[in-house]
């Protein structure tokens, strides 16, 4: 280890509960951005955003293999995750329960989508984006949304709605997403229908 390790949660019990509740809220109300509490005394190891790092501390452990995209796969991140979460880091994305994508999201293929009998054996992706309030507008409908929700994202591929529609078509199989921007989070469960709004 070349650098000093950044600290984990100041209060592992109560901080992880608060982070989890924010994540639960985000996934239960897709498309609505949720602010995560500030739980990182030293901040997050680059290039992780505070929201990504907080989710990792709250949800990862020795039972959850984690995959890092090339952008997130840095020694400081690996050391930090291993030390605080004790999670195995895997090279094969198909084995991952969680994945952190700090670079561009170009495909959802290759991650575990579960089986018809066990659709919960599927990956949850933490995707870092450039912004959750400007950029391409999408119309969201589905469970958790009363009528419809509008989501603006900066930093997703242009064909994201099409990628996502393929994932939704796998139901009950499929992967689930959290989009992170700084300390904010949007949850996208596999049930959410996403349409690109024409500008």
């Amino acid at each position: 280890m070349t650098e000093t390790l950044l600290a984990g949660l100041a209060d592992p019990t109560l901080d992880s509960q608060r982070v989890f509740r924010a994540a639960l809220d985000a996934l239960s109300r897709p498309g609505r951005a949720v602010d995560l509490p500030d739980v990182l005394p030293d901040g997050a190891p680059a290039p992780l955003m505070p929201a990504t790092a907080a989710l990792a501390l709250a949800l990862f452990d020795y039972e959850t293999p984690v995959w890092l995209d090339p952008e997130a796969d840095r020694l400081a991140v690996r050391d930090w995750l291993r030390f605080h979460c004790g999670c195995p880091l895997v090279a094969d994305k198909a084995q991952a329960r969680f994945a952190i994508l700090a670079g561009p999201l170009d495909a959802l293929d290759g991650f575990a989508a579960g089986s018809d009998a066990y659709p919960d054996h599927s990956a949850t992706l933490l995707v870092q984006v450039a912004g959750l309030s400007e950029g391409a507008a999408h119309r969201l409908t589905g469970p958790g949304i009363e009528l419809e929700e509008t989501m603006q994202i900066n930093g997703l591929p242009d064909d994201f709605a099409a990628l996502w529609e393929r994932n939704r078509g796998l139901f009950p199989r499929g992967i689930d997403l959290f989009l992170a921007d700084g300390a904010r989070l949007i949850g996208l469960p596999r049930t959410t229908r996403i349409e690109r709004k024409e500008a």
Partner: peptide
Amino acid sequence: EQTKRMIRRAILKAVAI
């Protein structure tokens, strides 16, 4: 805490499906 994390992960998948 490990048990809570395990249950929390199960809850998130339950909400997604």
